[in-house]
Design a protein around this nucleic acid. Structure first.
Lengths: 226, 226
DNA sequence: TTCATTTGCGGCAAAAAGGCAGAAATAGCC
DNA sequence: GGCTATTTCTGCCTTTTTGCCGCAAATGAA
């Protein structure tokens, strides 16, 4: 649907739930990882740095609440989204636990439809076009809000990948981006595309912009001229 | 920024919940009152005329649903906001709650974080209603009060969703709205609709307006041309 | 200069995204 | 209740985007 696939880590001790939920989230385009207890959840969270963590409350080797508290105490996970899975029967004793900074919760038994809509909703809340900034370099303005590149007053429309490519390069004018960096920033870490793909997109961008503002650094990468 | 504190009445038979929720809402700057059963909720509602009433579904001496129905049947409470607290996780009871005239619902066990964000969201929604202003872009005037679009003097009536869609896009001409943003703004965060739904509405709007003023940005979203 | 390597380029094929029509579901209304 | 308007879904179709291939051109080191 948009951007790179979001990483979701889901921790639950019931294999069935892991399977069903991860299947459905994958179908939605998310990149899903699983953990089957609290400690594994912690490890994988640090390893993967996911965008969202779904934690079952009742898990062996650290409950979801404990995991959440530990994560929230670390700066790196201050902004990570967390959803709790709670059994209805747990009730009052959990209220305090839910104070620990979860962003939402979903009751068990899980309706995948509900869970997915909550997940999507959370990402929606966080993903604002408004937070992206325009870049201006000389006569060139790159506006992610309008999704346009403006060169000396003339507006040009780029395709999505093309735009993301320019936006990345222009975000640090003069700095050389390695092909690897470009790949992981624009395409995402898990996507496998050939090396020529970058050239091709660079070419298209150069064609469309008409101005020669991207320099090749042979054997290294590309940069946007300051 | 905002006038005087909004009054919130919260009714639940569990003292713990009343305490924790009212504490947190007060911290948010609201003026909070409590009731511990359905009848008390009704009494205090009439007495205080609150801006928002939070009703537990399961309460002695009238359930939340009953209280809601009684209130809604009276003109004075036509516009009062109502949120249900429900212990039930199945969609059916949530939907039924919304049918009786609630503005939102929150599942138990409550995360105060979630509840507060819902409360704030509701007030934001109604506040915006008051300040909704006509938008004018070239020959097109979009009037949210009369709920119609005027193109070169000719008035057209749009369906609700169609109108909200145009209004959203036109509120920031040129800005690209992601499909996600459109979904959460026009459809709301908890609604589950398919992806193609947006296209279909866009198409209808384009058809009705006759003028080509909405541009597709493939892979990203839609925008209203400035 | 020559060779090895990297990049540019045109065209083509696959994949993705969106458009569209009609049907089904839902909500509103008399 | 039935009727209409609105909203949503489904499936198919068109367009655009994206990725890749082969080859030419460029680059740089030996």
């Amino acid at each position: 649907m948009e951007g790179k696939a979001k990483k979701i880590l889901i921790a639950d001790d019931e294999p069935d739930i892991l399977e069903i939920v991860s299947y459905n989230l994958q179908k939605e385009g998310y990149e899903v990882y699983t953990a089957k207890d609290g400690n594994e959840a912690l490890e994988k969270a640090r390893l993967l740095n996911p965008d969202l963590i779904i934690l079952d409350i009742m898990m062996p080797r650290k409950t979801g609440v404990e995991v959440c508290e530990i994560l929230r105490s670390q700066p790196a996970f201050q902004n990570t989204l967390i959803i709790f899975l709670t059994a209805m029967s747990d009730e009052a004793s959990q209220i305090k636990g839910l104070e620990t900074g979860a962003d939402d919760y979903v009751n068990k038994p899980i309706s995948t439809k509900v869970l997915i809509s909550r997940v999507n909703a959370l990402f929606r809340r966080v993903n604002h076009k408004d937070t992206e900034k325009s870049i201006r370099i000389g006569d060139i303005i790159i506006d992610p809000v309008k999704f346009l590149v403006n060169i000396k007053g003339e507006e040009m429309i780029l395709a999505k990948k093309e735009f993301e490519l320019v936006y990345l390069l222009a975000s640090r004018p003069g700095r050389v981006f390695l092909r690897n960096e470009i790949l992981s920033q624009v395409w995402g870490n898990d996507v496998i595309v050939g090396d020529r793909t970058i050239d091709v997109h660079i070419r298209k961008v150069r064609q469309k912009l008409g101005v020669d503002c991207i320099t090749t650094v042979k054997g290294v990468g590309y940069k946007f001229d300051a």
